[in-house]
Amino acid sequence: MSTKGGEFRFAFRQSIPVLFGYIALGLGYGLYMHNLGFSFIYPTLMALTIYGGSVEFVIANMLIQHFQPLNVLLVTLVVGFRQFFYALSMLKQYRRAGWRKWLLIFGLTDETFVLNYYSTVPKGYDRTQVQLWITLLDWFYWVLGAFLGGFLGSILHLQIEGLDFVMTALFIVLALDQFLKEDSHISSFSGIAITIICLLSFGKTYFLVVTLLLLVLEYYLLTKRRQKGAQK
């Protein structure tokens, strides 16, 4: 039985929350660039090539200042730092995906990562194919949102305030599902606690970087302790 269409339909259903979230956020981003004085080509092409919401907002702002390529590089690496750990967690799932691997890696945004990492597919479906469709759909939603925001610009007043909460709700629900089925809550609790502490102490720009480094340190110490325990 061919499941080609089935995989696409399944992926589409999984991606619906991101559809609403990315259109809402993408509209906001396109509108933001429009208000900075850019043609719709800019947000559309940046959404297509950079494909990272938080990076694009910062770069949009840097484009209206004087030319500072080194700063662009550093800022992108700092803001995109967390994606390194998404890729690290996806290493095992994606490494054997052949040519599809590169698209899957390119599309590793926050939302696509959480959808794809925890995805379970019906029997007979190719999981990698479902993940690829989810990746491509999410990418498309983001580009579409950015295009619409930039193109319609000030004509558009149908922005619904609060629609972007769908993304927060998506993370809450996925975190809750994960929390309910895991044996040990140490990782979940650490993630929440360390992020709150880092947000309060380091501020909005660097807290994710520090959080992730501390989580790696925590894992290192945990494995060390476990090894010591095993030797005794």
């Binding site: 959480v114 927060t168 993370f171 994960q178 990782s187 609790f189 993630g191 929440i192 992020t195 959080t211």
Partner: peptide
Amino acid sequence: FIEGLGKFLPPAIMGMLVVYCFR
């Protein structure tokens, strides 16, 4: 070590992203 880290991090990242939404 890397494989273990890749298993340890995702639940923490989920929690991190929830907090991130409220920044």
